[in-house]
Design a protein around this nucleic acid. Structure first.
Length: 767
DNA sequence: CCGGGGTCCATTTTT
DNA sequence: TGGACCCCGG
């Protein structure tokens, strides 16, 4: 131990320990041996974890290079990096072994690639590449794609990899009859293809690590000795492969600290094993278990509601969250007539909160399934309430970005066949299917890559001139650009490539509404490129950090799934759609039984505990599902929230009627309850009839206020005016009612929109 | 090579 | 209901 630091420790406590509660402090200073830190929602787990890391260094137990700190997401990793750097007053923690499972495994694998038959510069394929490769393999195996969807096989292989199975050790029982029982054979062929391509998919990163450590114990030993202390975040989300990897690396000293919350395990369907955390004490017999139970986030009422709910689950490790906070308001529960009324109600509540000075960014709507956001979006567009949907398509997954990346990958590694295939005819160069088939044939025969085959082929007359000419030009271009890599900085090179290949022109000439956005994205990509030293470094980043470029909007309500909300918090949280079948989700129940129900309940727990001050649950008595209407029952989870922590806001007996239904009594008051299905038209008519009596403020009131708050009447719009809307693109005004415009959008049909949300098409064109 | 139209399907999602 | 995907016609 370093003399200086131990001196500091013995005389006065390090400053970073002040302000921690007893449990947190214990979590920080219990450095040796296995520690399980059970950290309930909002109990300051990240703080404990980062402080522990800082403490390990400060008291000289380990040097940065000897600590392995693992998270699940890039977001969590960067947050941890920032906080550790801040704690230790370092400019950055560059080079430390702090990252996601995948990035850390990739880093190890780059150093050990030969051990599993790869070269150190292997390519990391994302799931899109993976799918295309799999399709090729399946075709080669003579499987009909229609009968056996490649996506299903990808899912199967992913499951196997999650469990740590290489093709040679997949248990018989795990092989279903997919592809006529040949799934395992295809898995093996797929792995072989990957090896030939010098490529890995995400699952391989960990799997290769496991294989390597198993086959070469001395390599394993080297890494075990290197990492003297391990920190693991969100341990309840680990799958078998990750678990095995951690156990291996932790040996022999088992200085491993796992942080997690069994009650927040919501990724079972993705291979996460709650059992990992439940079994911790058995895995590590001398483990120390520390509970963080003091909550710093929510009111006592919210905690009471959430705790009461989660207590229904069996097989928990058990925690009792408490707070010194005010009881606050009980959780509100509102029954509404249908989804439309629900959206209207929540819209009004938000406007009311806004009037009371609440910031929209402190309000979230958390739904069970992504499709539920739609109804809210429509409503919010109509009333002009700013919102953002969290978790849309991610930046590096966009078509244009992936195309551009394929160009860069092809420069970096000429033998990247998947990249070659992706862009050899983008923009169109007349290299269609026929030409590609010839190329594939030549490549297979010569045992070379597509690019190498192309180079050979253009020197012969095997291809017809219409293909040979553009292919020759393509090959020459690639050669030229690759030469330019030496002299031009890579952002500049990227620009040259995209320009000279005609790729940028392709989008400039594209008349669809997406085109300008795509060009923007390409610009952003080039800017991102500038932040990296090398092209290779950038590509590694892209492969593993499929991040969204954080769009910093103004003051907006957040709309997202419950899953996406994990780890976030808001003053006020709306939880719509708490209905049997929707939430808990019927499919989860059907497929997983009680296990599924418990995971749904944990999801409900996660939802409630996102709220700091206020949580509002709603349910609809009628819900349109897949186009047809059905009556729905309030979720059993509503019933499970302790009485003293909830307030039932019964509208015209709707709530009571529906709610009592759970107790087995009949639904009174509504003649439609008996019907299970009815036509949309009828339901709509009923909804209209009912909305006036449901006690929600009449629609007109809300809209009148919106109109008042408008600066002045905008006379720029008339029927026939061309306009542009941020989300819907271009359209033509068909009706003007004060500030409310009815617009026929070129894509997406007719919608009612507040005038301030659009601008004349002519203005949009200029920018 | 595009788009119209038919068909099928329908949690949750990170790396 | 709506989207994703596929097939075929112009």
């Amino acid at each position: 131990m370093n003399a200086m630091t131990s001196f500091a420790l013995s005389t006065n406590e390090p400053s970073y320990l002040t302000g921690l509660n007893d449990a947190q402090r214990e979590a920080v200073v219990s450095l040796d041996g296995p520690v399980l830190l059970l950290a309930g929602a909002g109990t300051g787990k990240t703080r404990a974890l980062t402080t522990r890391l800082a403490h390990l260094l400060r008291c000289g137990r380990a040097r940065p290079q000897e600590i392995l700190a693992v998270t699940f997401t890039n977001k969590a990793a960067s947050e941890m990096r920032e906080r550790v750097a801040a704690l230790l007053e370092l400019p950055s923690v560059e080079g430390w072994w702090l990252g996601t499972f995948h990035s850390l495994a990739a880093r190890i694998l780059r150093q050990e690639a030969e051990g599993v038959g790869l070269k150190s510069n292997f390519t990391i394929l994302d799931s899109d590449d993976q799918l295309r490769l799999l399709k090729q393999v399946m075709a080669a195996e003579g499987l009909e794609e229609k009968a056996w969807p490649a996506k299903a096989l990808r899912a199967l292989i992913e499951q196997w990899k999650n469990k740590g199975y290489t093709p040679d050790i997949v248990p018989r029982a795990e092989v279903g009859d997919f592809a006529g029982g040949r799934s395992l054979q295809i898995y093996a062929a797929y792995q072989e293809r990957l090896a030939t391509l010098n490529a890995c998919d995400f699952g391989d990163l960990l799997l290769h690590n496991l294989t390597l450590f198993k086959k070469q114990p001395e390599v394993a030993r080297r890494w075990q000795q290197r990492f003297r202390y391990l920190l693991v975040d969100e341990y309840q989300d680990t799958n078998v492969a990750q678990y095995l990897w951690l156990r291996l690396l932790a040996m022999p000293d088992n200085n491993i600290c796992c942080v997690g919350d069994d009650d927040q395990s919501i990724y079972g369907w993705r291979g996460a094993e709650v059992e990992n955390i439940l079994r911790f004490e058995k895995d590590f017999p001398d483990a120390k278990i520390i509970r963080l139970e003091r909550n710093y986030r929510s009111t006592a009422a919210i905690l009471g509601a959430a705790s009461g709910l989660i207590a229904r689950n069996e097989g928990r490790l058990g925690k009792t969250l408490w707070t010194e906070d005010d009881p606050g308001e009980p959780v509100q529960i509102h029954g509404l007539w249908d989804g439309e009324a629900e959206a209207r109600f929540i819209g009004e509540q938000i406007e009311s909160l806004q009037r009371d000075g609440h910031s929209l960014s402190e309000i979230a709507i958390l739904v069970r399934a992504g499709a539920q956001t739609r109804e809210f979006e429509e409503r919010f567009v109509t009333i002009g309430l700013p919102y953002r949907v969290v978790g849309g398509p991610r930046f590096y997954e966009r078509q244009e970005v992936r195309d551009a990346l394929a160009y860069l990958r092809l420069l970096q590694s000429p033998d990247d066949d998947l990249a070659f295939e992706r862009i050899c005819n983008k923009p169109r160069r007349g290299l269609g299917e026929a030409a590609l088939r010839t190329l594939h044939e030549a490549a297979r025969q010569g045992g070379i890559s597509l690019f190498a085959a192309a180079r050979q082929l253009v020197a012969t007359d095997e291809l017809r001139p219409q293909s040979r000419r553009p292919l020759k030009e393509f090959v020459e271009n690639l050669d030229r650009w690759r030469e330019a890599m030496a002299s031009s900085p890579h952002p500049e090179l990227a620009e040259i490539v995209l320009e000279e290949s005609g790729y940028l022109d392709m989008w400039r000439n594209d008349r669809t509404i997406e085109a300008p956005g795509r060009l923007e994205n390409l610009k952003a990509l080039i800017e991102a490129l500038a932040e990296f030293e090398t092209l290779g470094g950038f590509l590694e980043h892209v492969a593993l950090v499929m991040d969204n470029l954080e769009e910093l909007g103004g003051d907006q309500v957040s709309l997202m799934t419950l899953h996406a909300a994990k780890g976030l918090e808001f003053d006020c949280v709306f939880l719509p759609g708490w209905e049997e079948g929707l939430f808990p989700n019927q499919r989860a129940l059907d497929e997983q039984g009680n296990r599924g129900l418990e995971e749904e309940r944990r999801l409900a727990y996660v939802g409630l505990t996102r709220a700091r001050k206020r949580a509002i649950i709603t349910f609809a008595a009628n819900r349109r599902l897949y186009g047809s209407w059905g009556a729905s029952l309030p979720s059993r989870f509503i019933d499970e929230i302790p009485e003293e922590h909830k307030r039932l806001e019964s509208d015209q007996g709707l709530y009571g009627a529906a709610y009592q239904a759970w107790g087995g009594s009949s639904f009174g008051g509504f003649d439609s309850w008996g019907e299970t299905r009815s036509s949309p038209g009828m339901a709509r008519a009923r909804a209209r009839r009912a909305s006036g009596t449901l006690g929600s403020p009449p629609v007109i009131e809300g809209e009148a206020r919106v109109i008042e708050s408008m600066p002045r009447r905008d006379s720029r719009y008339h029927p026939g005016t061309r306009v542009f809307h941020q989300k819907f693109g271009y359209g033509t005004v068909s009706l003007v009612e004060g500030e409310r415009l009815t617009i026929a959008f070129d894509q997406g049909g007719e919608k009612k929109v507040v005038a301030s949300f659009v601008k004349p098409a002519a203005e949009a064109d200029q920018s």
